[in-house]
Amino acid sequence: MFKYLDKDGRNAEFAIDSENPAVLKIGAYEFEGMKIPARDIDMTPYQGKMVRIYIEKDGSYSMDYGTHEWLLVMGIVPEVTYKNVADGTDENGQTRMKQEEVPIDLHDTELTVFALPETED
Rank of each mutant, 00 (worst) to 15 (best):
H68I: 06
Q99H: 02
N20T: 09
G59E: 08
T95C: 01
R39N: 12
E30A: 10
L71H: 01
T95M: 08
E19T: 14
E100H: 04
T89R: 12
Y61W: 01
G9W: 08
L71W: 01
T67W: 08
L72C: 07
I16D: 05
P37V: 08
S60D: 15
D42M: 05
Y29V: 10
K25F: 04
F31D: 11
S60I: 08
K35S: 14
S62I: 06
V80R: 14
Y61Q: 07
K7M: 13
D64T: 10
V113R: 00
K57G: 01
G88Y: 05
E101H: 04
E30K: 15
E69V: 03
F31T: 08
S18M: 12
M74P: 03
D105S: 14
D108R: 12
D8M: 11
P37A: 10
K25D: 10
V51Q: 05
E79Y: 06
P45V: 00
M43S: 04
K35L: 09
M63A: 08
Q47V: 11
G33N: 08
D64E: 12
I104P: 05
Y29R: 11
L24H: 01
E19F: 08
E101K: 14
G75F: 06
V51A: 02
E32A: 13
G33W: 03
V102R: 04
D58S: 05
K25V: 15
Y82P: 02
Q99I: 08
Q94R: 11
P45T: 00
F114H: 11
N92R: 12
S62H: 02
T44D: 04
Q94A: 12
V51W: 00
I53L: 11
T109I: 04
T89V: 15
M97C: 03
Y29N: 13
P117L: 05
E118N: 09
D90I: 06
I16R: 05
T109A: 11
T67F: 10
L106V: 03
M43I: 02
I26H: 01
G88L: 00
Y65I: 09
G33I: 03
E13L: 13
F114M: 15
I55K: 10
I104M: 03
K57W: 01
R39F: 09
T112V: 15
D8Y: 09
W70H: 13
F2Y: 00
D108F: 09
R96G: 07
G59D: 11
V85M: 04
R10A: 15
T81K: 12
M63Y: 04
V77P: 07
T109K: 08
M74C: 10
K7R: 15
L71V: 01
V23N: 03
Y46E: 07
L116H: 06
S60K: 11
T89P: 00
K35N: 10
V80A: 14
I55N: 09
Y46K: 04
V102Y: 00
Q99P: 06
V102C: 01
L111R: 02
E101I: 11
K98V: 14
N84H: 10
G59K: 04
L111V: 01
G88A: 07
A28L: 09
V73N: 06
D42T: 02
V80Y: 02
P78G: 06
Y4V: 06
M1K: 13
D58W: 03
K7P: 10
G33Y: 07
E30N: 14
G27R: 08
K98N: 06
K3E: 14
G88Q: 04
K25S: 13
V80M: 13
Y82V: 06
M43R: 08
A15Y: 00
L24Y: 05
R96I: 15
